[in-house]
Design a protein around this nucleic acid. Structure first.
Lengths: 244, 244
DNA sequence: CGCTCGGTTGACAACCGTCAAAGCGTGTGG
DNA sequence: CCACACGCTTTGACGGTTGTCAACCGAGCG
């Protein structure tokens, strides 16, 4: 129940009695639930290969030819690009239920890596899925739907990257992540590091850290542990955008 | 052949003899060519309705139900969101050959507007296209391919937004636009305003203008007219990213 | 026990957004 | 035909935000 101090660049007058949320009882470290999404139960998954990864392993690679489409089953993945200056950009953060790696050739544009241990991925041979889709319109529709979902994720990412200030980006990111996971709408288990968040939002990790501190200071969020937090004031997070 | 002066924040020592490129002879104002892409010639386009727009008109809208998938035939479109503070974010810039408006419901997430006069769009009734795709695997594959292309555009946009400095973003944007249009790899007719560029790149129009001036100053580009330019030094524009 | 990695904070400089003003081109109306 | 107005573009000045460099801390691990 330690009282937290805030760094000097916050207004000292309001610094009192701000506490860390009491840790939830007996949160054993274990794999997260599968985000409550329905898994496909049709013939699609019968031809899937399941692969399991430890943290930081490569799922596919821009360099090597690869003829699979993928579905995230458990854990977290990141689709990223590395620039000439060594900076990394995370283009798509992959959570259970998300499909990724859609191509029409045997070449991917990006590299996908697992972010946490026990990341589980279902691999679908592209050619076989396409043949299946050719003969089964249901499957074709399902693939289309998953591709459209992937497009929605990318558009969401663009909207977040388009925000002008770091706090807005971080706030919108937290809300988005909370809506994509299933710990309840206001509980969030960021399983990813500040570095990964920074690379998602095109910020430095220091700025992410400062923004989180700022949001905590303003009472928008509270931390249960370093990567688990509760959303206290949604209004303070959402720069309420009207998607016109 | 006027000698251009540079604003004071550029190094005055190098300011001499920098000229506007000689204007191309007799460039009448007219519709741009259709970017040299093959148009689909199959049964898909037989059930398309062609619509023509003047500058600034709405093609579809986030508010109103709409059950079409679209294909840009001529001109330019912008898919955008407007935030609470009035700021606009362009999520996808639509050029001839681009499909857009993919959904599985009768609701769109964004609004699409024409950017230039004589923008021409082909509208495909979603339900009829889906039925056609159900019975014709060729069509289904074509739709998938167009959706994947749209995903590639969005990912490209994310990579550009992820760059840290304004000049890098503007430079990458110019190269991208040049690769998407067909005036030759080094000639570019931006048909859009600085404001639109700014809303694509999450910058202010002033910063876009300053970045363009800076790129011109560094000899990376030269202007044929205010919206037409030549790419002189690709290396200076591309912060050569290695997409890993 | 010491190392490494991730996270936080501080100091400072550079960059960019904002406000303001001016130039310019185009279209419109008198 | 001219005058005007409007929208787009450029430039200047300035202040706030953020990236960078640096230091420190704590947790996990060999």
């Amino acid at each position: 129940m330690a009282v937290l101090r805030f760094p000097s660049h916050f207004d000292e007058r309001s610094v009192m009695n701000i506490k860390i949320a009491a840790p939830a009882v007996s949160q054993a470290v274990q794999d997260p639930p599968l985000a409550g999404r329905r898994e496909p139960t049709g013939s699609l998954e019968r031809l899937a290969t399941i692969r399991r990864y430890r943290r930081g392993q490569e799922i596919y690679n821009q360099q090597k030819a690869d003829s699979y489409w993928y579905r995230m089953v458990g854990g977290v993945g990141r689709k990223c690009a590395v620039r000439a200056d060594g900076r990394r950009q995370i283009v798509d953060l992959l959570l259970p239920g998300d499909w990724f790696g859609f191509t029409t050739s045997d070449q991917h544009y990006f590299t996908v890596e697992s972010v946490v241990n026990s990341t589980v991925v279902a691999c679908h041979a592209r050619r076989r899925v396409e043949e299946l889709a050719d003969s089964n319109p249901e499957i074709a529709r399902e693939i289309r739907e998953k591709a459209f979902e992937a497009m929605t994720r990318l558009q969401q990412q663009i909207l977040i990257l388009g925000r002008s200030t770091a706090s807005q980006r971080v706030g919108a990111f937290l809300l988005w992540m909370a809506s994509r996971t299933s710990h309840g709408p206001d509980r969030l288990d960021l399983q990813i590091s500040r570095y990964d968040i920074a690379d998602c939002l095109a910020l430095s990790s220091e700025t992410v850290s400062r923004s989180l501190t700022g949001l905590r200071f303003r009472g928008a969020i509270e931390f249960a542990s370093i990567r688990r937090l509760n959303i206290v004031d949604r209004g303070a997070l959402e720069e309420d955008e009207y998607a016109a």
